Deep mutational scan, measured.
Amino acid sequence: HSLRVHINGKDFEVHNADEHVIRALEELIRRGADADELKEFLERWKG
C-alpha cells in the first residue's frame, strides 16, 4: 500500500506500508499522538 500522511503542513509518503505499519499509525492517531510523534514513527519505520 501507499499511504500519504499530512503532518504539520508536510506530506509524508509511506510506500509499501504493510498492514502492521498502517494499524500502528492509526493507533497513534487514535491515541491523539502529536505531529512530532507521528513523524518520529514514520522516520523510524523508513529506517
Rank of each mutant, 00 (worst) to 15 (best):
E26W: 15
K39C: 08
G32F: 04
I22Q: 03
F41A: 09
F12H: 02
F41H: 04
S2V: 15
A35C: 05
N16V: 07
D34S: 12
V14G: 00
D34I: 05
D36C: 03
E40M: 12
G32T: 02
F41T: 05
R31C: 03
A24K: 10
I7L: 07
A24M: 11
K10I: 11
A24R: 11
A24N: 06
K10A: 05
E43F: 13
R4P: 05
A35V: 15
G32H: 05
L42C: 06
I7S: 01
I7F: 06
E43D: 10
A17N: 03
K39I: 15
H20D: 10
R31I: 08
R31D: 09
H20V: 12
A24F: 07
F41N: 03
I29E: 02
A35Q: 06
A35P: 08
I22V: 09
H15F: 10
N8S: 05
L3N: 06
A33W: 10
R31W: 10
D34T: 13
R44N: 10
E40D: 12
A17K: 04
L38K: 00
L3T: 10
R31A: 10
R23K: 10
S2A: 07
H15N: 10
R30I: 08
I29R: 02
A35L: 13
L38V: 11
F41Q: 04
R30C: 06
V21I: 11
E19Q: 12
V5A: 03
K39M: 15
I22E: 03
N8V: 01
L42T: 04
R4I: 15
E19S: 09
E37T: 08
G32A: 05
H6F: 07
H1G: 15
R44G: 08
E40K: 13
N8H: 06
L25I: 10
V14I: 13
K10Y: 08
L28R: 03
H15G: 03
E40C: 07
G47V: 12
R31V: 07
D11E: 14
K46G: 13
I7K: 01
E37D: 13
H6E: 06
G47S: 11
L28H: 03
D34Q: 11
F41G: 01
E40T: 13
H15K: 07
D11K: 09
E13K: 03
W45M: 04
S2P: 13
K46F: 14
K46W: 14
I22H: 03
R44W: 11
R4W: 07
G9F: 01
R44Y: 08
E43L: 15
A17D: 03
E13H: 08
H1Q: 14
A35F: 14
K10Q: 13
N8L: 05
S2Y: 14
V14R: 00
V5N: 00
E26Q: 14
V14P: 00
D34P: 07
L25P: 00
G9L: 01
